[in-house]
Design a protein around this nucleic acid. Structure first.
Lengths: 218, 218, 218, 218
DNA sequence: TATGAATGAGAATTCATTCAT
DNA sequence: GATGAATGAATTCTCATTCAT
């Protein structure tokens, strides 16, 4: 409709593109406001008005961006999964299996330390999977994919003699539990940069059974 | 009608006692009904009527046993902590530190496997500690106590050379996270007696850094 | 549960029966309050609170008697149909066909004059049959039954030579339209006992084509 | 803005005129879209956006043509009254009173058959006259005028011996009720050209008491 | 002029809590 | 003690209306 030829000059973008961008920004503002609130208070004890206020708009406006509260909650849970997946990526790690594992764990723990709200939200969903089936399904699917990659890496490590032999699936599951669990117990008021997180990363490695134990103690 | 004024004759006394016992039973029935419901649906999405129905009484009756919904929730979260503490007791374990640790873990994992509802509830409370401060405080206090015992045991093990040296507090924290986490990730439909729980117990031991690694692989 | 032996003495009825009766009365009070309001303002412009207030209760109470607003509306429209059917009954008329017809019309007009609110409500439903399908279906079914009886009576009259020959179905339809229509046009502030209603009854007879015209002019 | 003071030069005039005509067309488009919607769903259940969409414009635009929803509704009800009046005109009828009456009825019934939406809307207004006083007043005024003409014609017919003597006002009222009523009861899915309408016209004549009954049976 | 994003009043519905029976 | 009817605060969602673009 509006001419967008080769346009990359902001002036020409104007009409359509600008509008779309603003719209996307507001949408994101709502999600950003919603996540910590849902995380802290759960679904039913978080009011749409509360979210709207936190996002700096009227409650009516929220409904211009999300069909209803359920849809907003779903988006708040599911959309960050993409970023999460990227943060947990195995692709960017390098070196021998054990070293790669250490990098993966470090990334993972860093994510846990920096996104406690979101993690809380995810745990809330998993803890109430009957009630939030749609969201839980998505989360579990992602967990599944992550687990698969992890299993492969564990087997590499076991073959390379860097990890003790054993059921890789069980090990991966134990590790996933560990990662989820430390988010719950590490003092919530703890600083994101607290050395406790490094310790958690180091201890987490032990679950995989590194043959050279000194690696696991840092 | 319910006058027991003269009471001291065993017959009358037992009337009073029986009444108290019945009362206690009904109270407990409410809590037993409430725990899985609160665990599955959270505080606000669990109705008093729902609980009452599950406990086989009218919703009005619930208020004869609990001042209000908050008080009921608090009791549902806090009262089982006593049993939990008993289940996690270090007193009944015996042998050398590592063996005692293995028994502790086994007890712990067994509890997790058998009380998923209650564990979910506790995690829910911890995940929303701002909202459920009273309950969360109690839970954390108990965790603290448990942690202290654990730290002592870890130090024993380290001194005995059965565990690698290291920060016992961090280790205890990591382990607590692990225990909480596996409850979240192990397939919820999983059987209580599933061998997965044994595997989780075995892997959990690794967090403590047993010097003889074969112990950790079961 | 409670003993109701032969009981017919009000004292014994007590518990169960009394409660049921009170419940029925309150339910009816809501309907009685709802009908004129729905009639005057339509479905969406009649608030539950408005109805509740008119019925002398809190709006929350209305929902103890009706699942939701739709259900209340449905009951308000459909339940009086029974009484209406009784009022229009052909059974109690007697004499030759023309005389019976006159009685039927008189009953009918009397009902229209005395239940303008309800009639308005029914017309509202018929006028918005797409939106109120359930209610409209019931109303039409009742109209259908009434029409059948009317057709039979018309044919009797025609056979007896008291009515001119003609399509009895069309005649019945015309009459039903007439009855509905006069409720709309006769001055709404008009008294229920106004002679205008007698005139309407007399003129209505003309639709049936009485052979002795003097009958139709009263 | 729409000032055309100087206007007399055809060029300028035609520009202004065209603009005015376009404006008028859009306005009419809105009304045309609004009538069936208001008729089917009533005032409150018809959204401005719905009307705007049906008229092929944005809801914001509707407010450029009508001050608010009430004003739009009023126009939708009142403006077609002019056309209606023309359709019901007595002026164009000819012949002796009875024949003129037959033409009037035929016109009337034809209008009812062809403008069911609008008729529904008018009936909706009359049925809720307290709520739509302005509109209802206009409708009633028009009905009044129509009634007067009808009364005159009835009296002519009575004087000419073509109609039985009687209260002409009551007769007119009965007829108006009839016309309104048949719109409600004749099967709404019925075709506009259905012979049922001819039958209704024929039967309607009977209300006036034609002395030669054969006229009334068609 | 036309658009559609933003607002906020209003309405239905739920549910903890009270209280008469 | 036990019940469940009644209450009304609180919450989600809709939609007429305004206004910047």
């Amino acid at each position: 409709m509006t001419d967008q030829s080769v346009s990359s000059s902001p002036a020409v973008d104007s009409a359509g593109v600008r509008k779309a961008r603003i719209r996307e920004e507001r949408r994101q503002a709502i999600l950003d406001a919603a996540i910590p609130l849902f995380a802290a208070n759960g679904f039913s004890d978080t009011g749409i008005s509360e979210i709207a206020q936190a996002a700096g708009m009227s409650h009516g406006t929220v409904f211009l961006y999300f069909r209803n509260k359920e849809a907003l909650f779903f988006s708040a849970v599911v959309e960050p999964l993409r970023d999460m997946e990227r943060a947990f990526s195995f692709e960017e790690t390098e070196g021998r299996p054990l070293q790669r594992l250490q990098q993966v764990i470090a990334n993972h723990v860093r994510f846990v330390a920096h996104h406690r709200d979101y993690l809380r939200l995810v745990q809330y969903v998993l803890g109430h999977y009957e009630r939030f089936q749609d969201s839980a399904t998505e989360v579990l699917a992602q967990t599944e994919r992550y687990g698969e990659s992890l299993v492969a890496l564990i087997r590499d490590g076991q073959r390379a003699g860097q990890l003790v032999p054993g059921d890789a699936h069980a090990t991966a599951l134990a590790y996933l539990g560990y990662i989820n669990g430390i988010g719950l117990v590490v003092d919530v008021r703890g600083n994101q940069e607290s050395p406790i997180w490094d310790a958690m990363a180091g201890l987490g490695l032990r679950l995989f059974g590194p043959t050279n134990m000194s690696d696991g103690t840092k």
